[in-house]
């Protein structure tokens, strides 16, 4: 009887050891990325080359990613890809570890114009992955593209109950703030309130909020006009070339999504290896081709075909970039934005 128990115990323990051992033995990196934000096959290639297993998870908004990390005290993930203003916010709150650029041999490929930005001086906490913009999406079969030039055009009463807006407080307020002639990084309550009042007039035109895959409602024919991200248009064009992208005259919202390593990351060295792999010019090239956003990787851009390099939807001219506005952290003012955003979305 006793022997039996001992035997069982021994078997149980050995199984337990085996399991623990295999967990320790397998090198891994836990990546938390936006949905549809990495080319097919890249992860498998990384594992094949380095032997590091990738655990891959996705999110659809900075807020969700931030809430999770905050709740877990920066633990649980080795790589996250926050947008500009979330980099500064998270770094300030001690959620992001320092990046050791010495471990990133491919860092030199990056365009200096997109490094050392105000949201992260000297790139201490972030390495730019892709950049893009939020502008106007249009189905040219249904709406005359010449009739739409500015954000303001979306307020026209004829678009009643038909527009798509992204489900993102900063992007939606960007539109209204710019129409009012203000900075989209405004921290003034009066300006934000004025933008809110303008947006309440837009609400009757809004059919749907979507930040998951905004191209889908365009492709399904449910929406012909509204906000969209440039990369989504590139992806949509593979299925329907009538869907096009317009840079509004008041300026598009421009953002950069960067790799960052949370302070609680358990595999920091593997995380650096992953970032370095993603910075390889050939991987950067495939990223542009697959997800349709611009890469800050100069060597990667050089590998792209001429048509893609000159596609203004992916790589806008200097003039358009200057016309637009980079999103930066608005600090505690985000609560003012959130308050009016809540009021806007519950107003119906």
């Amino acid at each position: 009887m006793k022997f039996k128990t001992l035997n069982k115990l021994a078997t149980g323990l050995s199984v337990l050891f085996a399991v623990t051992f295999s967990v320790v033995a397998a090198e891994k990196v836990v990546v938390y990325n936006w949905t549809e934000y990495i080319p097919d096959g890249v992860l498998a290639e990384f594992t094949k080359e380095t032997g590091i297993k990738v655990e891959y998870n996705t999110y659809e908004s900075n807020e969700v990613m931030y809430s999770k990390l905050k709740l877990q005290n920066g633990k649980g993930y080795d790589i996250v890809i926050p947008s500009t203003y979330y980099i500064s916010k998270m770094a300030k709150e001690g959620l992001l570890a320092k990046i050791d650029t010495a471990q990133l041999s491919n860092f030199t490929h990056l365009d200096p114009a997109l490094l050392n930005k105000s949201y992260d001086p000297n790139n201490q906490h972030s390495v730019p992955y892709v950049w893009g913009s939020t502008g106007i999406g249009i189905n040219t079969n249904e709406v005359d593209p010449k009739s739409i030039k500015s954000w303001k055009d979306l307020w026209d009463k004829k678009w009643q109950n038909s527009l798509l807006l992204t489900d993102d407080v900063r992007e939606v307020f960007h539109m209204a703030l710019r129409v009012n002639g203000h900075s989209s990084n405004s921290t003034s309550e009066a300006e934000i309130k004025q933008a809110y009042e303008l947006l309440t007039k837009l609400m009757p035109n809004v059919l749907v909020f979507n930040s998951d895959a905004p191209r889908e409602p365009y492709l399904a024919g449910d929406v012909n006009l509204g906000m969209i991200w440039n990369g989504e248009v590139i992806m949509a064009q593979e299925e329907d070339s009538a869907i096009e992208y317009i840079y509004p005259t008041e300026g598009a919202a421009i953002w950069v999504d960067s790799f960052a390593i949370p302070t609680g990351a358990e595999n920091k060295s593997n995380a650096h290896k992953f970032i370095n792999f993603m910075l390889r010019p050939d991987v950067a090239k495939r990223t542009v081709e697959y997800i349709g956003y611009a890469t800050p990787n100069k060597a990667g851009i050089a590998l792209l075909d001429q048509a893609t390099q000159n596609n203004p939807t992916i790589f806008p001219s200097k003039r358009i970039v200057e016309q637009g506005e980079f999103q930066t952290d608005v600090g505690p003012a985000i609560e003012i934005y959130n308050k009016y955003w809540e009021m806007l979305k519950t107003s119906k």
Partner: peptide, 18 residues
Amino acid sequence: GAKSLLLGNVIKNQFLVV
């Protein structure tokens, strides 16, 4: 269309967005 229609949406937004 993700317009806050139900109480569940308000609660979700409080946790994830606001």
